[in-house]
């Protein structure tokens, strides 16, 4: 009887949960696993659902934690930044010259004639996130989904603070530059 409940959730909210997970994990298999873990956990804790929030809000709440778990466990966080990751992102050495001045000055996200509304910016951001090396995109989501002090993030991912900072700095500056370029690409050459 309980399982019927979960099947109903799957029918009614499965698409939404999957879309949410896929956008943040960037991988169909991982997204499916997150949905599965969410529905199983929801089934186990169905008595914990007090009816205060809507069912979909409750399920997304569980899904967020499952996504956080998966981001922590499934990435090889301790691996050093690869050549591919460096080439597909922007770092301080790309942005600044040796004397610490801007080598590639920030340019506006749009020319004044072309006013971007929030929706267009959101779409650009999604394209930019999709283009970011997956580890960096997942780290951005991890920081968004869970507001933890940097030391705890380092602990749970098993990486040094220097590595965390390097990944985050590259991720954020790449997104910033990518948004300037209309979500096309983030290469500076």
């Amino acid at each position: 009887m309980m399982s019927q409940q979960a099947l109903l959730w799957l029918e009614e909210h499965g698409d939404m949960l999957y879309a949410y997970a896929l956008r943040r994990l960037g991988d169909a298999h991982q997204a499916e696993e997150a949905v599965q873990n969410t529905l199983l956990a929801a089934l186990e804790n169905a008595s914990g659902y007090a009816g205060r929030a809507s069912v979909s809000t409750w399920l997304v709440g569980i899904l967020k934690y499952k996504i956080i778990d998966q981001i922590r466990e499934q990435q090889r966080w301790h691996a050093p930044i690869s050549q591919d990751e460096i080439e597909q992102s922007v770092g301080e050495d790309d942005l600044f010259s040796a004397d610490g001045h801007w080598a590639h000055e920030p340019v506006e996200w749009s020319d004044p004639a072309q006013l971007l509304d929030r929706k267009q910016l959101q779409q650009r951001l999604e394209r930019c996130l999709a283009r970011l090396p997956r580890r960096m995109a997942q780290l951005i989501w991890l920081r968004q989904l869970q507001d933890e002090p940097a030391e705890l993030v380092c602990q749970s991912l098993g990486i040094s603070q220097a590595n965390l900072y390097q990944l985050l700095l590259r991720a954020r500056q790449t997104l910033r530059v990518c948004l300037s370029e209309g979500g096309q690409h983030a290469h500076l050459s």
Binding site: D15, M16, Y18, A19, V35, Q122, E126, Q144
Partner: peptide, 12 residues
Amino acid sequence: SETQTTDHAPSL
């Protein structure tokens, strides 16, 4: 605001 977004695309 993207973190808050839920929609149904792409579907399962």
